[in-house]
Amino acid sequence: MHWNRDETFSVTDAQPSAEAELRRRRRVYTVIMAIHLVGFAVGGSLYARAWWTGLIIIIVTGPLQWIAVLLANAAPRRARRRSSFVPKALR
């Protein structure tokens, strides 16, 4: 691989560490599942009194479990590379 001397790298271009990525995935999964469980419990308790409200809450929070798993298993984010292009007139 040939390196260009004019090409510069930035610390912000670095990928997050494996531990940081795992922490982020766990946090996302935990938050979404907490919302799912609270919504499911509220929807279940409301179902006995106002069945339509409880049913709507259960239907809305139902897919959150699936979404949480998809986001937790998603590939790590890729850092966008900044263009280091500088016109010759400005060098």
Results as ranks from 00 to 15, higher is better:
A79I: 11
T61M: 08
R91L: 12
P76G: 09
V86N: 07
G62K: 00
H36K: 02
A14Q: 10
V86T: 12
E7D: 15
T53A: 13
R24E: 03
I32K: 01
I67A: 09
T8D: 08
H2W: 03
L46Y: 10
L90R: 07
A75N: 09
N73T: 10
P63H: 03
P16C: 01
R78C: 00
S84A: 10
A14S: 10
L71T: 02
A48D: 09
G44C: 06
R91Q: 14
K88M: 01
E19K: 09
I67H: 03
A68Q: 02
R82G: 05
P87N: 03
T53I: 09
E7I: 07
L64Y: 10
V31H: 06
W3K: 06
V69N: 10
W3N: 06
A20K: 14
I59W: 06
S83T: 12
T53C: 07
V11A: 14
T61N: 10
I57E: 04
D6A: 14
A50Y: 13
V60A: 14
T12I: 04
H36Q: 07
I59D: 00
L37T: 03
P16R: 08
P63S: 02
V38G: 08
P87E: 04
Q15N: 10
L71H: 08
E19S: 14
A41I: 07
R80F: 05
K88H: 05
R82K: 06
W3V: 05
